[in-house]
Design a protein around this nucleic acid. Structure first.
Lengths: 210, 210
DNA sequence: CACCTTACCTACTCGCGCGTAAGGTTACGC
DNA sequence: GCGTAACCTTACGCGCGAGTAGGTAAGGTG
């Protein structure tokens, strides 16, 4: 393609390769993606990719880490521990959906692909556990502020449900270009917070039938 | 293995093959699963699998459909339209988590694998859309009963969030053998219903900051 | 200008696993 | 007791794509 004998420094090429790899993985899925296509889109030959980023698995992990870092930054960078619990949650959600909206390929690679495909699932699961732990901790804070206490396990479950809901909405966001991140965030906030508040205040739903 | 010249009728062999296939797909993932292993576990040689169930893709789809049918039955079979909205939701959730708990391999194949892997993702997405539509309709009913009205799009989002949360909890359930389906269902019900009720009553959460 | 390092290429090898051709054997109807 | 159809096997073809060996040229440094 752009085979105009352009010689570029390693740092630049690496970024181009990662860029290309994210797009190819997102479009084709991990298995159907070929190293040849990654190389071609980066405007380089296959052995260069191997020289700089290693095997296909290593390349995927490199993409994963890069996107995870960006996502983490987009979320953690905007939550100020001074704010109220609901405000923190809101900002985190908004940051999250903004990232996904601005970065749909990244999301597709980072989470959709890695969710299943061993050996990446483990890595992703660890990240998710981190997320869940952070959220559960926030919930515990909000709880303490109300002078109440709830088993950690229960909070874990709530947090996991929130993360799951977030991922489902993120998937839709990534697929539908006309979906607005702000609106998505607001809706999830409504779906979650109104209920969480009641739970934090000690209300419980119980089945009527055995 | 059991190469004791056992000759069996087609209907029986097909079930054995599907059984084996679900387990292999669940353990290894679609790509890493080999037709040889499926054949071996079914106690049969590879060409038999091809003769009865077709190519690898077709075999996977067969598993998918079987599990999807069972799941649908487990959920739809227990919701009685006569009951109140929350009771219907509760029964549906309980049925869902009971299925997953009793059928962890099935869940792993059915949803985790198919979520990403084209060309199955399309099929799965259709099922999910069906689920979301049904739930959104229930919510609309509950809404009408309270004399209120909300844009369908909003309800879709709530329903999708619920489904996402359900899937996340189902994933955990499938991975941790000591997790109890009933408890999982109760917790999700609490996380969701308390909030949904407030939303259905017209309450809204709004951000304080721009 | 000799040199060395870094960027980059063409052109392979090779294993793996899907899918199949061709043939053997058991049960069952008549 | 023999035909035939259903059941089941061994043994292979073959494409595809990951990963590599070995070589070329460009630009900086003395």
């Amino acid at each position: 393609m752009a085979r105009v004998g352009k010689r570029l420094p390693r740092s630049v090429r690496e970024q181009q390769m990662l860029e290309a790899a994210v797009r190819v993985f997102a479009e084709r899925g991990f298995h159907a993606a070929t190293m040849d296509e990654v190389a071609e889109r980066a405007g380089v030959s296959k052995p260069m990719v191997y020289a700089y980023l290693g095997t296909k698995d290593e390349l995927f992990v490199a993409c994963l880490r890069r996107e995870a870092g960006r996502l983490l930054e987009a979320v953690a960078g905007v939550v100020d521990p001074q704010l109220s619990a609901d405000e923190q949650l809101w900002r985190g959600l908004r940051g999250f959906f903004r990232y996904v909206g601005a970065n749909r390929d990244g999301w597709a690679v980072l989470f959709r692909q890695a969710r299943t495909r061993e050996p990446f699932a483990g890595e992703l699961a660890r990240m998710r556990r981190g997320m869940v732990a952070v959220i559960a901790e926030k919930l515990a804070d909000a709880l303490r502020a109300r002078g109440r206490d709830v088993p950690a396990e229960e909070l874990q479950t709530m947090a996991l449900a929130l993360v799951g809901a977030g991922e489902a909405l993120a998937d839709r966001l990534a697929d539908t270009p006309d979906e607005d991140p702000e609106r998505t965030a607001t809706r999830l906030m409504n779906a979650i917070w109104l209920g969480a508040e009641r739970q934090l205040d000690g209300e419980v739903w119980k089945p009527q039938t055995g």
